[in-house]
Design a protein around this nucleic acid. Sequence first.
DNA 1: ACTCGGTCCTGAAGGC
DNA 2: TGCCTTCAGGACCGAG
Length: 290
Amino acid sequence: MPELPEVETVRRGLEPAMVGKRIALADVRRPNLRWPFPDGMADRLTGARIERLRRRSKYILCDLDTGETLLIHLGMSGRMLIAPPNAENGRDMLGQFHHLHPAPEKHDHVVLDMEDGTRITFNDARRFGAMDLFATELGETHKLLAVLGPEPLGNGFDEAYFKAALKGKNTPIKSALLDQRIVSGLGNIYVCEALWRTGISPLCKAGGISGKRIASLVPAIRQVLAEAIESGGSSLKDYRQTDGELGYFQHSFAVYGREGEACKTPDCAGNIKRVVQSGRSSFFCNTCQR
DNA sequence: ACTCGGTCCTGAAGGC
DNA sequence: TGCCTTCAGGACCGAG
């Protein structure tokens, strides 16, 4: 499930394959993912050079030399596949583009053939992902970006902001942390992990948590994300796979997916419980998380 | 304004 | 060549 660290890892993996390169041919193989693709997306991508790859929350933003930005969300199951150039593809001496990549497979929804023959494929079985194109100059006024709270690893996310954002909230802290308007980029896994690190129960009402405990969440969130990015970075560095798949990595979790197993807090005799909050599983230790 | 639950989608997993 | 149910999840959207 791509949350901020996974998206950042994907962004870093895509950089060498995309930045500074032109899209020789964009193949948009269905009319929509979660939402309809913008009109003429394939034509608007074909011929564009990618100047920069940015990340905002769980979105990857590709700034093009056409004045437009390609927004990509991986949803639940979205993956970016990178297939390196073959000796036979790219442009021939007449400037004609050709490629010998295998035919796209099931759930390959958007295929970008770069000018050097590299093929970038957006594959998303569940189609919770999204793509959009918008004028770069609109910046963060894009509908999906305008509602986002601060980046958890950025300067805008600090104790003062966080306390103010949670003040008076009746919703459980678990739900508040999943709310992208409060802080953006967290998903179910890292919310569970950050709460465990601070000893705060996911069931606590957000507005009722002491200032000291709220303050402790700030570095806990930052650290769990930074560690996951580091973990992703190292897996990326070692990454060598024939199909070029990129996007997921192994990371060890203290609570997520560990229902019934022993709590990893030193000297804690508890075991991990699972409860459902607003339709999502929360994993926590009800002995050391209060 | 705030909070909650429904919804989209497919594949994996598990019960029988 | 088994069928069926349940679950996973991000984020929008409508209901209360």
